[in-house]
Amino acid sequence: MTDIGAYAVPVVILIIVITGLIRVKGVFGVFTGGAYDGLEVVLNIAPSLIGLITAVEMFKASGALDVLTYAMSPVANLLHLPQEVMPLVILRPISGSGSIALLDRILELYGPNSAAGRVACVMCGSSETTFYTSTMYFGSIGVKRIRHTLVAALIADFCAIIVSNAAVGILFG
């Protein structure tokens, strides 16, 4: 099963390059144009990443992160989650760059092949910044009463967390 991942990237690149060569004129120019946009994306998130990673790093150094993790360990145990991912569970629906910052720290501390590292990665990959996304989408058209959007979205996020943990357990356990 885990081999799928090793094929996914080369196969996608193959498909894109072949269709590009056949159907797009000046394919390399198109590539560099897109890559330049990527530059802007990184430039845009750099300030918030610098602010947030510093904050996370301070939070860790002060010992507050350990206390928070420990305080949430009953919830982690109840859900059979590695307790190191609990801070990420809270931050994920709220802030995109915040969760990248925290994920980066988790991977540095516990390693990418640890249970915590894997669950954290799968969680981040399978959910979105729920609050931000719904605020932006509804805000853009002036809708104030969003009814049951957050209920459904947050239950979906919760489901993503549970399945992430279970899937990592099955694939790598």
Binding site: G5, A6, M123, G125, S126, A156, C159, V163, A167
Partner: peptide, 18 residues
């Protein structure tokens, strides 16, 4: 990328549930 099947499973489940 060895986590890809897990990511797919989790996002598909959360999409369906949501």
């Amino acid at each position: 990328m060895d986590i890809i099947p897990a990511v797919w499973a989790a996002s598909l489940c959360s999409l369906l549930v949501g």
